[in-house]
Amino acid sequence: MALTIQVNGKSHEVQADAETPLLYALRNDLGLIGTRYGCGIGQCGTCTVIIDGKPVQSCDVPVSAVVGKQITTVEALGSDAAMHPLQQAFIAEQAAQCGYCSSGILMAAKALLDVNKDPSDADIRKALEGNLCRCGTHSRILRAIKRAAKEIRGA
């Protein structure tokens, strides 16, 4: 069936079954491969996108459930020319090893910083509880998010 979804500020028509996970519609129909598969059952966070301001694991939501909602993926976080402070901070802190977890963590962090401009270490850790990183890049990621928060606050 044809479903219309709002992704990164644009309308897209997707030809798929209603129960198709949003993850596959984003990746395979819209070519937005920055949102990644890790478990398919909401346990790892690699597929995190922002829906109406909240971080959501896109593997766990059927595409029919997001019609009429605003979806933001990592591709719209910033552009190459004007990266989001989070992206800049991840580069500055070299906060990746394999980088497979990066998109999901960036989106979870964005959702946090949008509502909490000055998160504590515990706030950030809590916000990332649903995101796994197997390479053990956690301490750099935490540093990068603090750095971005500071940058955004203009501090």
Binding site: G34, E75, D80, Q87, F90, I91, A96, G99, S102, S103
Partner: peptide, 11 residues
């Protein structure tokens, strides 16, 4: 800086 990180943080 690692050469691959910019692509990985921009999806």
């Amino acid at each position: 800086e690692r050469v691959d990180i910019p692509n990985k943080v921009t999806g």
